[in-house]
Amino acid sequence: MKTVVCIKRVPDTEARIRILEDRNAIDTAGLKFIVSPYDEFAVEAALRLKESRGEGEVTVVTVGDPAAGEQLRSALAMGADRAVLVKGESSVDGLATARALAAELKDMGADLILFGMKAVDDDQQQVGPMVAELLGLPCVTVVTKFEVADGRVVCHREVEGGYEVVEAPLPAVLTITKGEYEPRYASLKGIMAAKKKPLEEKDAASVESRIGVQAMSYPSERPAGRIVGEGPDAVPELVRLLREEAKVL
């Protein structure tokens, strides 16, 4: 059973983001980067699948600059077996990234290709489904847990107000969301072992990026809080505002 997990290097979700002066990119100087949290769920899912079957191989792949090797090594420290860094630009054009990945994935012979549901930097949710399309594979998105048996994968999907169970033949592409797969800590032995695991660097297939960032801006400041009254007398007004203005009741 060969599982490939595609991950992305993204800024730490707790980092304060600064925009560069020409307003088309963020300032990465001194910025801490992490594996996108949904991708970590996918890595965890792949590792659990391998552990429960007692066999298999987990490969992590990313498209990005060489610095993304750090995130691949994080995944290796969690327990992945090998890593591939597809050297290329991490583009805002999802299709360009998907094409670069698909070119790499098509000959890898994966039974299962996992993605995080989305990358937390640009939130586009494109690359997983696009890769499936390019490879002609079935794609199940927003998966909270899955099981593999007899050449098929059974997935639990989050849907409005509940969940549905769907089935697809392998090989398949899944995008994983928070569910069963709380990522493990990389053990110290895992961190040490990661150094010795293979990390292959390849040049990305030449693909054109057709989308560019025109401008970035900070979110508008949140308006100041409002005091609607004090004590029990304030309750009716508060309830009215929550219902009519905030529309949360």
């Binding site: 090594r73 800590y185 990389a186 110290l188 961190i191």
Partner: peptide, 14 residues
Amino acid sequence: SEEERMVRDMVRAW
């Protein structure tokens, strides 16, 4: 080193 930071960050999170 990257490895030293990884160790530190893991224990920090734990």
